[in-house]
């Protein structure tokens, strides 16, 4: 459970974006079956979670809080479909809860990651572009924040303030951005001295314009790689927090708290442990694979033929 968006996937420096970069990348991506499979799986998971209320009503005919105390610990079965993944200790449909849990877990992951991204890009650009005292302050702040093990801070804050899904998202969104900032800052630093930026400066373009029109597009592709990894990391962190009883609080289901809940009953119903655990694993794996595949596609040099 690493706390920051650690670059598990190696990053290469950004280069001048040519018109063909994206289309080349797309071409290579299409040929990368593993990444495509991961992207498809993730899309299915996201769509299913979004459709949770519809599926619950029409396919499974169950709400996520509906109990059936006569069918507690129902083993997985196709009939009724609501017990596709079994029933929990209150006879609630595991599959429906998993779908709703997906809404929460994925929401936290995606939204918090976008917050990280916004802060990370903003501060990274400013820091890398202006340098000097601004950079010193931001860098110092990042160093300090990084010195407090973020996972501790997160645990303390969540315990003390018992957040709901939204607050948790905001807290994670405000805490996990340092990795992205560092990356963007480094890239901006390098790009700043490049000819096309110098040219833009020479013709008197405004700083913000250079940052957003010239620097950002060049690092954006690699940022998507970081984003994918960041989402994966956040989903893991959220589930770990919920597992400790510090994240999303029942009866709102999240993958982490479903797993935590099931851990009490595993001697009775092991399938209650397996489905949320496997879903977290699958989601995170897909995100990391996408990150990796995207990186390779964007930067074939790294993939390099040796």
């Amino acid at each position: 459970m690493s706390a920051t968006a650690t670059p598990l996937i190696a990053m290469a420096p950004a280069r001048r974006a040519s018109a063909g970069l994206w289309s080349n990348a797309l071409y290579r991506l299409r040929r990368d079956r593993l990444t495509l499979a991961a992207a498809t799986t993730l899309t299915v998971l996201v769509v299913l979670s979004i459709l949770a209320p519809l599926l619950a009503e029409h396919v499974f005919d169950r709400s996520f809080e509906q109990q059936d105390l006569l069918k507690t610990y129902h083993p997985p079965t196709l009939d009724p479909p609501a017990y596709l993944l079994g029933g929990d200790e209150l006879g609630r449909s595991q599959v429906v809860r998993l779908l709703y849990g997906g809404q929460v877990s994925l929401f936290v992951g995606f939204v918090a990651a976008f917050m990280n991204l916004t802060i990370g890009i903003g501060l990274g650009l400013i820091s890398g572009y202006f340098r000097g005292p601004v950079d010193d302050v931001i860098t110092w702040f990042i160093t300090t924040l990084n010195s407090i093990p973020i996972i501790f801070l997160l645990i303390i804050i969540t315990t003390l303030f018992a957040p709901g899904a939204l607050t948790l998202t905001i807290i994670i969104g405000l805490l996990f951005w340092t990795g992205i900032t560092n990356f963007v800052r480094g890239q901006t630093f390098a790009l700043r001295e490049r000819e096309f930026i110098l040219a833009a400066r020479t013709i008197g373009a405004a700083s913000w314009r250079i940052m957003f029109r010239h620097v950002l597009p060049n690092i954006l592709p690699l940022i998507f790689v970081l984003l994918a990894i960041d989402i994966g990391t956040i989903i893991l962190a959220e589930s770990a927090l919920s597992y400790l009883g510090l994240g999303i609080v029942p009866p709102t289901p999240s993958w982490g708290n479903m797993l935590s809940n099931a851990s009490t009953y595993f001697s009775r119903a092991w399938w209650l442990v397996v489905s949320p655990g496997a879903t977290i694993f699958l989601t995170v794996l897909c995100l990391y694979l996408i990150g990796d595949g995207l990186r390779d596609a964007l930067d074939p040099r790294l993939k390099g033929a040796s």
Partner: peptide
Amino acid sequence: GFSTPTFF
């Protein structure tokens, strides 16, 4: 390895 939650 790094996609599997340790608690799982």
